[in-house]
Design a binder for these strands. Sequence first.
DNA 1: AATGAATGAGGCTTCATTCAT
DNA 2: GATGAATGAAGCCTCATTCAT
Lengths: 225, 225, 225, 225
Amino acid sequence: MSPRRPATEPSEKSRTRREQILDAAFHTFSQHGFRETAMDEIAAAANTSKGGIYFHFPTKEAVFREVMRSTADRLAAKVERAVASETDPIARAEAALRTVLLTFSGHRATARLLFVDAVGAGRVFLAETAALHARFAGMIRTYLEEAVDSGAIPPLDAELTSQAWFGALNEVVARWLLAEEPDRLDDNYPALRAILLRSVGVPEERIAAGDPAWHGARSDDRAPR
Amino acid sequence: MSPRRPATEPSEKSRTRREQILDAAFHTFSQHGFRETAMDEIAAAANTSKGGIYFHFPTKEAVFREVMRSTADRLAAKVERAVASETDPIARAEAALRTVLLTFSGHRATARLLFVDAVGAGRVFLAETAALHARFAGMIRTYLEEAVDSGAIPPLDAELTSQAWFGALNEVVARWLLAEEPDRLDDNYPALRAILLRSVGVPEERIAAGDPAWHGARSDDRAPR
Amino acid sequence: MSPRRPATEPSEKSRTRREQILDAAFHTFSQHGFRETAMDEIAAAANTSKGGIYFHFPTKEAVFREVMRSTADRLAAKVERAVASETDPIARAEAALRTVLLTFSGHRATARLLFVDAVGAGRVFLAETAALHARFAGMIRTYLEEAVDSGAIPPLDAELTSQAWFGALNEVVARWLLAEEPDRLDDNYPALRAILLRSVGVPEERIAAGDPAWHGARSDDRAPR
Amino acid sequence: MSPRRPATEPSEKSRTRREQILDAAFHTFSQHGFRETAMDEIAAAANTSKGGIYFHFPTKEAVFREVMRSTADRLAAKVERAVASETDPIARAEAALRTVLLTFSGHRATARLLFVDAVGAGRVFLAETAALHARFAGMIRTYLEEAVDSGAIPPLDAELTSQAWFGALNEVVARWLLAEEPDRLDDNYPALRAILLRSVGVPEERIAAGDPAWHGARSDDRAPR
DNA sequence: AATGAATGAGGCTTCATTCAT
DNA sequence: GATGAATGAAGCCTCATTCAT
C-alpha cells in the first residue's frame, strides 16, 4: 500500500518510473531527433513498454516538451548559480558564457537536444523553440543591462545584442556538434570571450587580462547527463 | 531511362518541369520542413503527380538536397556579386552582411529553408548542413582575412570569428522567423553591423560613420523566390 | 518490443493469432503466389490488420518463409511417420511415395505452395527452394540407399535417382494442379509406383504384386489444411 | 520508303526491332523472372524505349507469352530434328532426351525461362504453362507409343509415363539451375537415360550398351541463345 | 515508328495511439 | 500501474500503361 498521500500526488515508485522515461527520452531524442525517435525506442531504453509511457504522458509531443523543459531548467539553474557567485557585471556575463560552454562541452547530448533538435522538431514546436532561445538570450540580456547600468560598458541595443551573443555561442556549439572529430569545445572560450566582450565595448585592457575564473575550470567530458 | 545521365541536353520541356518541381519543393519544404512534407504535397504544388517527381529525382532526399544546393548557390552568388562591387575590405564584409540580411528579409522562405530546415532535416543531412554553414562562414572568413591582411583590423582567430559572425546573423534571422509578428528584419542591420564590426576591432569612427551603402537599400518584401 | 526474442514463452493469445496469420498466409500464398499476394489480403483473411501482422513478422518475406517451413515440416513429419511403420526397404520407399501423393491429393493448397509457389516466389527464395527440393529428394535418397544396402535393388546413382523420382512425382502433382478438371490425384499411384520401382531395378514380380498398403487408403479430399 | 508490301506485313526494320525486343526480354525474363522484370529493363536491354515496346506489343504479358512461345518452338524444332534422324523407336526417345539435356546444358537461360519462370510467372499463365509442359511431355509420349507399338517395350500408361519422364528431366535441370556451382548438366545423361529406359522396361542389355549417339556430342556451353 | 515524360494505382512498411487484461 | 497486442492512417517508392510530339 502506498503511504497516505492524495491520489493525485505521484507515488515514489511513479516518480522514479517517470524519470526513467524522461532520461531515456532525453538520450534517444538527442541522438536521433524528434521525428526519428520512435516511442518503442524510448520504451526500450526506459526498460518499460509503450503503454507504460502513455500512462505517464499523453502524447509523444508531451514527452518531448517535458524533456526540453527539464533540460533547459537544469542548464538555466546551473548558469544562474555560476553567475550568482560573481558581483562585477562583466564577470557575471563571463560566467554565463563560460558556464554554458563548459556544460555543453561535457554534455554533447544536452547541446544537441536544446540547439539542434529543438529547431528540427517540426513546426509544432516553433513557439517552444522561440521561447527557449528567448530564455537564454534573456539571461544574457540581463547581464548586459546590468553592465550598462553600472557604466561598465556603453549603452547598446540589449535585445539585439543578446540575440547576437546567443547566436554566436550557439553556432560555435553547433559546429562542434556537427564536426566529425571535434576538438575540445572549451578551447574556444578565450577567443569567443574576447570577440563578444569587444563587441559591446569592453575596454581592451580588461579583455587582454583574460577571465580570472578560467584557470583549470575545464570540463571533464564525462558526466552522464 | 532515367534522366540522371542524359545522353543529350535535357529538353526545354523537361527543364521547365524539373524547375516547377524544385520550386514547389522549395516552398513546401520551407513551410513544413523535410519530414513533414509529403511527396504528394510537392506533386500537388508542382501540378504534377508523385510518379512525375520520381521521373526527375530518385528519392525525396535527392529533391531536398537539390533544393538546398540551388538555394544556397543562388544566395552565395548574390552575396559574391554584392561583395565584388566593393574594394575596401571592411566595406566588403559589410556588403556580405547587408546582402544576406536584405535577401532573407525579402525571402523568409529562403531563410527558413537554409537555416531552420537544414538543421532539422534529420541526421541524414548532418554533413550537408555542416557544409552549408561552413560555406557561408567561409565567405565571411575570407573577407575578415582580407581586412586583417590590409591592416584594417588587428589579427584574429578567423575561423572562430567567422563562425561567431555567422551565428549572430543566423540567430537574428531565426528569431525573426520564429516571431509571431515580426518587424522588418533589415531594421536590425545597423545595430548588428555595429556589434560585429566592433567585435573585430574596427575603429569606433568607422562604425559611427554608418554603412554608406545603406541608404534606401531596404528590402521590398515581395519577391516570389 | 518485438516478439522475436521473447523473454518469456509467447502467451496463448499470441500463439493463436500468430497461427491465424500463418493459416491465412498459407491459403492466400497458395492461391495467388508470393508476389501476387498483398499483405492486406493476408490481414483480411486472418481477421486482423496489416499492422497486426507486422507485430508478429518483420517482413512479408519472413511470413512466406515461415509458411513454407512449417508446411514442409508437417509434410516431412507425415512421410517419416508413414515410413517408420514399414521395415522392408522397398516398402519404405513405397510408403514415402504413397504418403506424399495421398497428402497432396487431399491438400491441393499444400502442393501448390511447396511445388509451384516455392519455385515462382522470386530469386530471393532460390536457396530456400533448392533446400526444399533437396530435403524431399534427400528423404527418397535415404530409402533408396537402404534398399541398395539390403540388396533389394542393385547399386545406383542415388543422388540422381532421388532427383528423378522426386521430379517425376512433382510433375505428376503439378499437372494435376494445373489441370482444369483434375481426376483424383491418387489414381495415378499404382502406375507411378510401377515406373519408379522398375527404374531402380525392383524385380517385376514384386512390382506386379502391387503395394499391399494400398487398399482403401485413398485420400478424402477435404481436410482444411 | 518501304518496299511494296501490305501495310499489315511487318517491314524489315520492324521485324528487326521486334526481335531485338524479344531477345532482350528473353534475357531479362530468364534472369529475373516475370514479375521482377520491369519494362524499363527490357527497353534498356533492347536499346529502345518503353514506348517503343508498346508499339510492338500490347502488354507485358504479351511480350512474355511471345518469348515463351518462340523459345519453346525453337527447342521443340531442335528436338524434332534430332529425333527425325533416328529410326529405331528407342533411339528416338534417347535422341529427344539427349537433345533437351544438351540444349539446356548450353543454354541455362532457356532452361530457366521454360521450366522455372513459366511456373513462377503467376496464375495468369497457368494454362500457358500447362500447355508448355504438355507439349514436351506429348513429344515424349509419341516416342514411347511408337516404342510400344513396335514391340520394343511392353505396354504402359503413356500419359503418366511421359509426365514422369518429363518431370524427372525437369527436376534434374532445375536442380542444376539452382545449384551454386553446378557441374556439367550433361554429365548426368548416361545415368538418367538408364533410369528412364529401365522404367519402361527396356532390356538391360540395351541399357548397358549405352547410347551410341553419345560420343563427343557434348554441349559447348557458349551459344548466346 | 519511336521517345521521353507523365500518370496513378497499389504495395510494403512504420508508428503514434488505444485497449483488454 | 503496466504490458503486449492491435489498429489504421500515412508515407515512400515502383511500375505498367498512356500520350503528345
